[in-house]
Design a protein around this nucleic acid. Sequence first.
DNA 1: CGTCTTTGACCTGCGC
DNA 2: GCGCAGGTCAAAGACG
Length: 354
Amino acid sequence: MDPWITSQPSLSLDLHVGLPPMGHHHHRYQPAPPMVALAKPKLLVEESFLPPKKDPEVAVLESELQRVSEENRRLGEMLREVAAKYEALHAQFADLATAQANANTNGVSNNTNNPSSASEGGSVSPSRKRKSEDSLVGGTPSPPSHAHPHQHHHHAFAAADQAECTSGEPCKRVREECKPVVSKSYVHADPADLSLAVKDGYQWRKYGQKVTKDNPCPRAYFRCSFAPGCPVKKKVQRSAEDKAILVATYEGEHNHTAPPPTQPQQHHDAGKNASAAKPPQAPAPLHHPQPQQQQQPKQEAALSGETAAASELMRRNLAEQMAMTLTRDPSFKAALVSALSGRILELSPARDVN
DNA sequence: CGTCTTTGACCTGCGC
DNA sequence: GCGCAGGTCAAAGACG
């Protein structure tokens, strides 16, 4: 997040989200119809201790105002904190983009004559000779770019370096260094939804599922089936800490153009199908996975514009995510109702009418 | 009938 | 060498 967010007046809300009841019990969240809370405050606060000779109603409102102001300040601090973190991430992203541009200008030849991305996966070997396939995949330097979608948080880990992995060096170190680009994104999903679908606009074909040691939730393995021969894989697993969060790990680079953007993305998936089964529905990924051949010549020149566009997109995604997360939070809804009711009461000219 | 998901088996890397 | 864990394969079944 950047100053844009902190400067938005609409973001300064008089809300108390997820906070413990403060003194008065009338703001506790009730799962019952939210509007019930609207009528409550006036009655309940009258029981509190108030200085004499002061209109109890006014005192209540004052204390309420004070409390709300305090919360507002606290939320503002949180927002600033988030904004600072966003800035840090953004700077990191800019660094990566710069590094990517440099790498592309230095090592263009690595990308174009990449036989594996076209052959690997395009024609599936009938037999299980993965040893040779592995050496092919592992020994192929991945072109540096961002081949993965958008969504909440997103970290891209480029390979350790882009040094060529010559076939003459079978050592483990070389293999390690030539790992494809790996990136992670965290997606909010309904915990009740068992499908590990992360809609990112691409078509994915599920080819495996595994329960891992450190997480009781199974991890699903997908391959990009948007274009034949696309080497990109992704792993999707629910976060062990928060089952509502899907962690998608993307590996490799798409060797095709990004799917056309369509309707705004819905993060819940009512169908039973994983993301592979549907045609692309999501907006274009944050970092457009352009084919490397088209990307390189103009990349440096277009970098600033692209970064700006990416930043804008990131902003929108972030705002969407925040809105979505908040609106799914029952305590947020209760807080919203409470804040609105307080404001309505405050502004109402007939508020002293019983 | 073609495509996709499921799922058990297999392969590979790694630590001991 | 052995066992473990992660990743992948491919047969079988579901589905449109």
